[in-house]
Design a protein around this nucleic acid. Structure first.
Length: 728
DNA sequence: GTGCATTAGG
């Protein structure tokens, strides 16, 4: 940019005056659009020096620029030099007031004009549309004596922008009837209206009209047609359209880039990005957003850094993507930096930015800072509310979450999902079902993640009844082919004891991911279908590209352990690192110790523990102790117990087991010693819990008395039943 | 062709 300025500085305007003036004008517009205040001021000085300043349309460009920069004294100065407020200056002022959001002032200026031209009308009409004042805008539209293409197009695109695409299409029909010829801009708006309404048939007939009127080679029109094809799922057609374009701009490239991302081919998208002849803020934003969405937050950050280094100004959407990447990586400090930056450039109040900020703070566990941002926003939209409710939910601050949820002006299915997900996280399963039922009563359709949460709740309380009901709803909504829901259903049936249905759902899944296989292998193993579990593991290795993971191996070992297939288990364990490349973790060793202990191979189990490269889990020692109890080996029990005592782990299971062993041997002094030790260490036996489902409500009972709100009545009835039974 | 209408990203 500086080089362009330099060139103008060195050229003599008298040589080719017209071309000089036009170069100045386009440079001014550039500075104005990009907000480059210093460049603009510098150019102003240059124009003054070179004597081209008095050129009228240069002065107007300067006025527009200063209005854009909100430099009012400078703007006033120029108005003075232009001999006051004429029609064009008034038009510029109306436009500026529209940009600043002073619609009242804009209208006042318009209404008080001594004369108006077509630009005056269109400026006001489009300005009102820009701010969502559709009705007012149409009021002026109907009274506009200059109905040219531009004002028709302003009306149509205004409708589209405000979500009234159908009205936009109706206006387009009126335009055709009026005899005014639509141009390339009109067609781009109309095509986007068709995309918005999903009326692809109409879209195709508009294509016919475009071809007939000869606008099919226009870049913008072509770009919008590419988007139309993408929305129709016609990816090949989109690509062909792109290929036959003679000139392509950044928008075309970005559109085709996004197509590959949508197809899940991030590699090809990246290749296109690297090969694009020109990249602007939006193309960068697009690829950054997609990396962030697909979970590659590091790469998103890398690209963001590169973009900033190139001197490009990140857009609002770019900041919002990067905040969400930082949120996922829990990089609080960097997040705070971005917060400071967006505050400095004055976009902190933007709905996308503010909800990303809330999300970022909450994902980093700083709900209070999130709340500060939330409270600072005057015009909150539903997304912002959802971010805050969801933020409390993931941090298990359910009282705050529910309180905020209850105060929401409007809720959507995401809001309900956030609160349900929170209760699931908090393991308040009765609340999960309660809120879910409430949601259904309001007529809101649950999203897939919400179904997944509730299914997980069903799996946790083994409520087959509710699970089946959900299954029905999922099928009704046509969600049954979704991988995540299929997996959740498989898990729910397995955990609820209906392994046949679980397998059936799994078999019918059109697509399976790593988790689906894990869940099914685990489900079969834990339900005692050891052979089937091992067979499925083999099948997966044979037929799918999914690699075995830690959890699957754990299930396989578990299956071997619980069916006494000790040697097979030992073989799998040996193969873990060598064949599958998975380093055994504490859980795997524990499983092995359990397996050996169960089959009475206590010395091997003890040797196994001693060979561990790290501290054994308390559970491993507990498993060995349990074996000692079964096979009455006090010698190993004594040694293991000592080890367990040394282990400063916060697990009560081992101590409880130890005390049970002593109890069964009649060594009561040792029992009481252990109880004392547990009290000193602040360990508490984790309470047992059972539950029963009555009329869509899950009642939980814990081993401590009186935790149920109606426990007094329940015990009364129990007493009554007992006396009845004894009496008869 | 002073000034007004559009397409890609969230």
């Amino acid at each position: 940019m500086n080089s362009a300025l330099k060139a103008l500085f060195l050229t003599d305007p008298r040589k080719n005056f017209n071309s000089y003036v036009h170069k100045c004008a386009s440079l001014l517009k550039n500075f104005s659009d990009k907000g480059l205040v210093s460049g603009g001021t510098l150019l102003h000085g240059l124009l003054f020096k070179k004597g081209v300043f008095s050129e009228r349309f240069i002065a107007i460009k300067l006025l527009i620029m200063y209005l854009n920069f909100r430099k009012l004294p400078e703007a006033n100065q120029i108005v003075k030099e232009l001999d006051g407020f004429d029609l064009v200056v008034r038009n510029c002022l109306i436009n500026a007031n529209v940009q600043w959001g002073n619609l009242g002032e804009a209208r006042k200026l318009f209404d008080e004009m001594p004369e108006r031209n077509e630009v005056s009308w269109t400026t006001l009409i489009s300005g009102l549309m820009k701010h969502g004042r559709v009705q007012e805008s149409m009021w002026y539209f109907e009274r506009n004596p200059f109905k040219n293409v531009v004002s028709w197009t302003a009306g149509i695109s205004g409708f589209v922008r405000n979500g009234f695409s159908f009205h936009g299409l109706k206006l387009f029909v009126r335009l055709l009837e009026s005899g005014v010829k639509p141009n390339q801009v009109t067609f781009t708006s109309v095509v986007s209206a068709c995309i918005e309404t999903g009326d692809f048939e109409l879209g195709m007939s508009v294509v016919g009209l475009i071809v007939k009127t000869g606008f099919e080679d226009n870049v913008s029109v072509c770009n919008s047609l590419i988007t139309l094809c993408l929305r129709m799922g016609e990816f090949d057609l989109a690509r062909r359209l792109f290929d036959r374009m003679e000139t392509r701009d950044v928008v075309s490239w970005t559109a085709i880039l996004d197509m590959y991302v949508e197809l899940g081919d991030l590699g090809e998208a990246r290749r296109i990005f690297d090969e694009m002849p020109e990249r602007n803020e939006v193309s960068w934003s697009a690829i950054i957003a997609r990396y962030s969405q697909s979970g590659d937050h590091r790469e998103a950050l890398n690209l963001f850094r590169q973009m900033v280094q190139l001197g490009l100004k990140p857009t609002i959407s770019c900041f919002s993507s990067i905040l969400s990447a930082l949120a996922s990586l829990e990089l609080l400090r960097a997040g705070r930096n971005i917060h400071a930056h967006v505050k400095k450039i004055g976009i902190e109040g933007d709905v996308f930015i503010s909800s990303s900020l809330v999300d970022m703070y909450c994902k980093c566990g700083e709900t209070e800072d999130g709340r500060l941002v939330f409270d600072s926003i005057e015009k909150k939209n539903v997304v912002l509310w959802n971010s805050m409710v969801g933020g409390y939910s993931v941090n298990r601050q359910m009282d705050e979450a529910k309180n905020l949820f209850d105060h929401m002006p409007t809720r959507n299915n995401v809001s309900w999902g956030a609160i349900i997900g929170g209760y699931l996280e908090y393991k308040q399963f009765d609340k999960v079902f309660e809120v879910f039922n409430e949601m259904l009563l309001t007529g809101e359709i649950p999203t897939k993640p919400t179904f997944s949460s509730v299914l997980c709740g069903c799996a946790s309380v083994a409520s087959l009844e509710k699970g089946k009901d959900l299954h029905g709803k999922i099928v009704k909504l046509g969600f049954q082919n979704d991988v995540f829901l299929g997996t959740a259903l498989t898990d729910m049936y397995a955990k609820s004891g209906d392994i046949a249905s679980s397998k059936q759902v799994f078999d019918r899944m059109p697509e399976r991911n790593e988790i689906s296989w894990t869940v099914m292998i685990q489900g079969l193993a834990e339900s005692g279908f050891v052979e089937e579990s091992l067979a499925l593991f083999e099948e997966m290795r044979r037929t799918s590209s999914v690699a075995p993971n830690e959890l699957m191996l754990l299930s396989v070992l578990f299956a071997c352990s619980h069916s006494g297939l000790v040697d097979k288990g030992l073989q799998f364990f040996e193969e873990m690192e060598r064949v599958y490349g998975i380093r055994p973790k504490g859980r795997h060793y524990t499983c092995m110790v359990d397996m050996l202990s169960r089959s009475g191979r206590l010395y091997e189990a003890e040797a196994f523990i001693n060979s561990l490269p790290f501290q054994p889990e308390a559970n491993a020692l507990a498993a060995l102790l349990s074996g000692c109890k079964t096979y009455k080996n006090e010698e190993i029990a004594e040694r293991t117990a000592r080890k367990l005592g040394e282990l400063a782990e916060k697990s009560s299971a081992g101590f409880v087991l130890l005390s049970n062993i002593y109890a069964s041997a009649g060594r009561w002094i040792d029992v009481s010693n252990i109880r004392k030790l547990m009290r000193e260490k602040g360990l508490k036996k984790s309470g047992g819990c059972s539950w029963v489902e009555v009329r869509n409500h899950v009642h939980s009972f814990y081993s401590e008395d009186g935790t149920h709100s109606e426990s007094a009545e329940i015990y009364d009835i129990l007493e009554l039943l007992r006396s009845e039974m004894l009496g008869s």
